[in-house]
Amino acid sequence: MFEARITQGAVLKKLVEALKELVTEGNFDVSSTGLQLQAMDSSHVCLVSLALREDGFEHFRCDRNMAMGIHFQNLSKILKCAGNEDTITLKAEDNADQLTLMFESSNQDRISDFDLKLMSIESEHLGIPDQEYSAEIKMPSSEYQRIVRDLTSIGDTVLISATKEGIKFSTSGDVGTANVTLRHNTTPEKPEEQTIIDLKEPVALTFALRYLNNFAKATPLAPVVKLSLTKDLPIVVEYQIGELGAVKFYLAPKIDD
């Protein structure tokens, strides 16, 4: 059987809210090492990779590897019934066609359980190699959210260029143009307020703002976001979820036809 208990149930709620519009459905692959999800959006230009470690949960047991097909809008409906302070336990029998979610209030005086119907989803796993990127930028996740939101109101695509001067986000549209530059800034005392640019070589790539804006739905999960860029390769937008794991979004760059 599979059983996973997380005291901070709000993390699970935020996670599903971050994913549900980007990916309609996907498999929770559970094994003794944790829970993983790899799913693409309907147009296959972006990919979500989620990895939650077994030791990040208060309790984790998985006797047999399983792929649990989840419809994310449906999972979201159920998780909306959990309180923000609730502990959430996920349970499934081997080869089950449903996932049980149990919510316990913090003072243990309210316990509820919901069964989510599982789907059979054929999914192809892509091998994503570990690689060095030309530029890696860590910045406050709220800053990333603000930049992509602001630029989405001006244009459809953004040119992200990383140089030794900083990282620049540029767009243009009917109303005009916009540029936002962040400089390497380690002055703030708190690491989560710093902007850290690790540049191997200058790089500039164009992306659809609609997707970058969608990735920012993960902002409540982490104070810091990491962007990784290399010429002609997908950007990686990564949120570390405390000690539990990480969610990474990959988006293909725009190419000139």
């Binding site: 296959h44 230009v45 796993h125 892509l126 091998g127 695509t157 659809a208 997908p234 190419i255 000139d256």
Partner: peptide, 14 residues
Amino acid sequence: AAGQKSMTSFFTKK
């Protein structure tokens, strides 16, 4: 016009 490649053109199937 600018297009976008599919994820499967960047990462190989396992």
